[in-house]
């Protein structure tokens, strides 16, 4: 969706301000939010990363832009837990269980944490269809404005670029976020000239490369 998360090319946010010797977490609660995210996903909750991103992006733009990173994570956690009846809003108010579901399945234990975070994963799936594009092909990204989750940013829509890498068939976020299954599609790295994206005044030395799924692309 054309939400506040789609920031590429916007202006007016001011300078980038790096922090010296920045800690991984700026408050205890931030670490707990990250840890709960990992632990609940390892307990087999009925949602995936694309659904989480979709919930975050659905925040009203003013909220999204004024919340801190881990506040946005906390929002997506409580929203998905409530939506699926695992922790309902009344329970958050009361501070104890009031009838939302309890969990009887697997739970992540401390001894399993290292294996859970370092286990190699893969988003590549076998598909029957061959890749439509090859390295060096010229492609045009589509002008699409879906109301659901997509990974084609606005700044890279309706632009001509060149296939630089063929990554394999990857889980397709637009489908996976909507609960329509993984529906793996071929995914490519596509390189665009800065001037194609931003016009004649752009830095002539700039290229921007994005990982884009086949349904976003047509031959140019």
């Amino acid at each position: 969706m054309n939400g506040a998360q789609d920031l590429g090319g916007m202006m007016g946010f001011g300078p980038v301000v790096p922090e010296k010797n920045e800690p991984p977490f700026h408050a205890t609660w931030e670490g707990r939010v990250l840890a709960m995210e990992v632990a609940t996903r390892n307990a087999g909750v009925p949602w995936n990363l694309d659904m989480i991103r979709s919930v975050r992006e659905s925040l009203p733009p003013l909220d999204y832009l004024s919340m801190s990173y881990y506040e946005i994570w906390l929002h997506s956690q409580t929203e998905l837990l409530a939506r699926h009846g695992l922790v309902i809003a009344d329970e958050m108010k009361a501070g104890h269980a009031l009838g939302g579901q309890k969990h009887a399945g697997h739970v992540l234990h401390a001894d399993d944490v290292w294996a859970a975070v370092t286990r190699p994963g893969s988003y590549i799936r076998d598909v029957a269809e061959p890749a439509r594009f090859a390295v060096g092909d010229r492609v045009r990204s589509l002008n699409i404005n879906p109301t659901g989750h997509t990974r084609l940013p606005r700044y890279a829509r309706a632009k001509v670029g060149t296939i630089g890498r063929v990554h394999g068939a990857h889980v397709y976020p637009d489908s996976n976020a909507a609960g329509r299954g993984e529906d793996a599609r071929w995914c490519y790295n596509v390189t665009f000239a800065g001037r194609e994206l931003w016009g004649a005044d752009a830095d002539p030395t700039l290229t921007v490369s994005l990982d884009l799924w086949e349904p976003y692309l047509e031959p140019a």
Binding site: A35, M36, V87, V107, V113
Partner: peptide
């Protein structure tokens, strides 16, 4: 966050010791 952690623990979705371990891994 504290309320959420206590609810998830009570309901059996998370083990607080695993949360400690996760924080330690990334710190």
């Amino acid at each position: 966050v504290r309320t959420l952690e206590s609810l998830l623990t009570e309901k059996g979705y998370v083990d607080p010791a695993a949360l400690d371990a996760l924080v330690e891994v990334y710190e």
